[in-house]
């Protein structure tokens, strides 16, 4: 059960991050994209650790 929750959250989170990065990428000027890339990457990675912790709490792995 925990594994399913973790995999589902990870998939949704990854797709959301890619979508948000794509939308922001199209709307920003050149050097702002670098800042955006760093912020999105940071929030995405931190989110993966949070999802993993939630999955572990739910009984995975």
């Amino acid at each position: 059960m925990g594994m399913v929750v973790m995999a589902a959250l990870w998939t949704v989170w990854t797709l959301g991050a890619v979508g948000a990065a794509w939308a922001l990428w199209r709307s920003m000027t050149s050097h702002r994209k670098v800042y955006m890339l760093i912020v999105v990457h940071g929030l995405y990675t931190a989110g993966v650790f949070v999802i993993y912790a939630l999955g572990c709490r739910a009984g995975a792995p």
């Binding site: 000027t29 050149s30 050097h31 994209k33 670098v34 890339l37």
Partner: peptide, 8 residues
């Protein structure tokens, strides 16, 4: 200059 800073 902006282009030099950025990813282009």
């Amino acid at each position: 200059v902006s282009e030099l800073h950025g990813i282009k």
